Amino acid sequence: MRSRHCPKCQSTMIEGFMVDEGYGTRHVTKWVEGAPQKSVWTGVKVRKLRKLDIQTWRCRNCGYLENYATG
């Protein structure tokens, strides 16, 4: 695991991820290019665009979160 330092307080940050939960399933949150478009059926439209997993780092001291789209 890489070591990162918080841009706010310079403390150590730890690697993690954010979870999307729904209908009994869990998935790593995805980044999708473009502005969200509302959908009556699914809440938001997601076309066949590039979707990237989001890696999240959290500061042990102040709780600041920093997200990176990986892939």
Rank of each mutant, 00 (worst) to 15 (best):
R4P: 00
E15K: 13
K8N: 06
E33N: 10
E21T: 05
R4N: 01
Q37V: 03
L65W: 11
S39G: 11
E66N: 10
K51Y: 01
I14P: 02
N61A: 14
K30H: 07
Y64K: 02
T42E: 04
R60Q: 11
N67Q: 13
C59Q: 09
K38W: 14
E66R: 15
G43A: 03
T29I: 06
T12D: 09
G24I: 07
Q37E: 15
S39Y: 11
R26C: 02
L65H: 08
N67G: 05
K45N: 12
V32N: 05
G34Q: 06
W31G: 12
M1H: 13
D20M: 07
R58E: 03
V28F: 06
G63R: 08
R26Q: 13
P36A: 09
T25K: 14
V19G: 00
E21R: 09
A69L: 03
Y68E: 12
R2H: 10
M13C: 06
G16S: 12
D20K: 04
K30C: 01
I14M: 13
L49T: 06
C6P: 01
R58N: 03
S39Q: 06
I54Q: 13
G22Q: 02
G71D: 11
E66D: 09
N67V: 02
M1N: 05
E15D: 06
C9R: 09
D20N: 13
G43N: 08
G43L: 04
V44F: 11
R58F: 05
G71S: 12
K45F: 10
T29D: 00
R60L: 15
T25H: 13
E21Q: 08
K45E: 15
D20S: 12
K45I: 14
V32C: 09
N61Y: 03
Y23F: 09
G71E: 12
T56A: 15
G63W: 11
M13S: 08
G43E: 05
M13E: 02
P36Q: 07
M1P: 04
E33A: 11
V19I: 11
G16C: 08
G63D: 03
T42N: 10
R26P: 00
C6L: 02
K48I: 04
A35D: 15
T70N: 02
T70V: 15
W31L: 07
M1V: 02
R47H: 11
G16Q: 03
A69P: 09
Q55V: 13
W57Y: 14
G24A: 10
E15L: 04
L49D: 09
